[in-house]
Nucleic acid binder design. Structure first.
Ligand code: MN
Ligand code: MN
Ligand code: ZN
Ligand code: ZN
Lengths: 141, 141
DNA sequence: TATTGACTGATAATGATTATCATTATATCT
DNA sequence: AGATATAATGATAATCATTATCAGTCAATA
């Protein structure tokens, strides 16, 4: 009889329960539909009067990634954007103007499952992005 | 009758011929089998006594990307690595130890051609990478 | 050859991320 | 519970790849 039902969600080993700050960071990501940078997340929390240290924001995101809960991609300006792993979004990005258009579905879901089995590697998420020129930029030549 | 055979390689418009520095950067990438950072490329050229300014290295790489000749990906430390677009390499990367294992072939070549036609977007290259835990790191739990 | 605009390189500025370290919270004992 | 060891936090400083600046140089064209 489980007294603490939350335990069911975790592996048998001494998987450390998430700290208050780590849960806060996770909640922000859950409420957001879009990837967000660590800096923005930090500022968002300050405005909400739920401030946590900037270093802790970075550390929490790292922990959550290692748990397989959070993923990151790096935008044009070299800034990391974080989101839940279940957000599985991919983009066409223009090298000239930087505009990103999302694809309407993930083309490699199946491939990931396939790889998962062949390789001795636990896959948490993937990144896939196409780069080139959008129509307007291509016309300028 | 073409007097200058090199012209055949370029589009009709006034595609500016590459400058000496831009050609130097391109040559380094051609001789290398591995992606290289702008900083390393800069140092390599210094040792070769073919020095060009660091800013020019960055600018040249940008020009070459816009020409569809060069691609970049961002490594674990947030540093951009550059290579020729024809190098079509993808990795499994461990979130804990950072070790990257290359895949032995590109799983999305066909997909790229398919997208190219449907979308009004000129695709130069793509990035695809899988993240998770390698066996040793997964065992440590 | 003079004019014009693009390219270069030295250097300074930027800004996201990481390192440091004293403090605080949490877990593990007796 | 109280004592002790261990991990997490937050303020701040340090790092370092990249970008901005700007004066000087090169290259094309008339
Ligand atoms: Mn996907
Ligand atoms: Mn590929
Ligand atoms: Zn564009
Ligand atoms: Zn590993």
């Amino acid at each position: 009889m489980s007294v603490d039902s939350d335990d069911c969600l975790h592996k048998s080993r001494q998987m450390p329960r998430l700290t208050r700050q780590q849960r806060t960071v996770l909640e922000v990501l859950q409420q957001l539909a879009q990837p967000i940078s660590a800096q923005s997340l930090y500022k968002t929390l300050r405005q909400d009067h739920r401030s946590i240290g900037l270093a802790t924001v970075y550390r929490s995101l790292e922990v959550l990634k290692l748990q397989g809960l959070v993923q990151s991609r790096i935008n044009r300006q070299g800034e990391s954007l974080y989101s839940l792993v279940q957000q599985d979004q991919h983009y066409l990005t223009c090298l000239k103007c930087g505009q990103s258009t999302p694809l309407d579905s993930c083309p490699v879901k199946h491939l990931e499952r396939q790889l998962q089995q062949s390789a001795s590697f636990t896959i948490y998420y993937h990144s896939l992005e196409f780069f080139g020129l959008c129509q307007p930029c291509a016309l300028l030549d």
